[in-house]
């Protein structure tokens, strides 16, 4: 399975819905998407990972890179994820302390901290 990406705007947030596998091959596409959004002035991003089947460290690197970019504009990058197999990767790398991780898009969009 390849990577699928779609974006929509909810208030002042941009929701990026990601599906499929984020790995060394597909991660550059996600990176391009995040860079493009930030360049177009979207600084409050919600990355919905509910449709992600696989995530590796390359994908984590892209998300960290995205966070760095939005923070340069005082923005935010929130994740939506309930899948244990994906959450585990954030835990073992200590990134649960870096990313706010929400259980639903609604919750992420409403979050302000």
């Amino acid at each position: 399975m390849d990577l699928s990406l779609s974006t929509r705007t909810v208030g002042d947030r941009t929701v990026v819905e990601v599906g499929g596998e984020i790995d060394v091959y597909t991660a550059p596409k996600l990176r391009e998407q995040l860079v493009e959004l930030v360049n177009d002035g979207s600084f409050h991003l919600v990355v919905d990972m509910e449709g992600v089947d696989f995530l590796d460290s390359t994908g984590l690197g892209v998300l960290v890179g995205g966070l760095k970019r939005v923070r340069a504009h005082e923005g935010s990058l929130r994740l939506v994820c309930n899948q244990e197999r994906i959450l585990k990767i954030f835990r073992i790398t200590g990134l649960t302390k870096v990313f706010p991780i929400h259980t639903s898009v609604e919750e992420a969009v409403a979050a302000t901290d």
Binding site: D56, S57, T58, L60, G61, I89, I92, T93
Partner: peptide, 14 residues
């Protein structure tokens, strides 16, 4: 180097 280390960190964590 950073990406390389992250990959190794994931492997040793798993």
């Amino acid at each position: 180097t950073e990406e390389d280390e992250m990959g190794l960190a994931v492997i040793s964590g798993l």
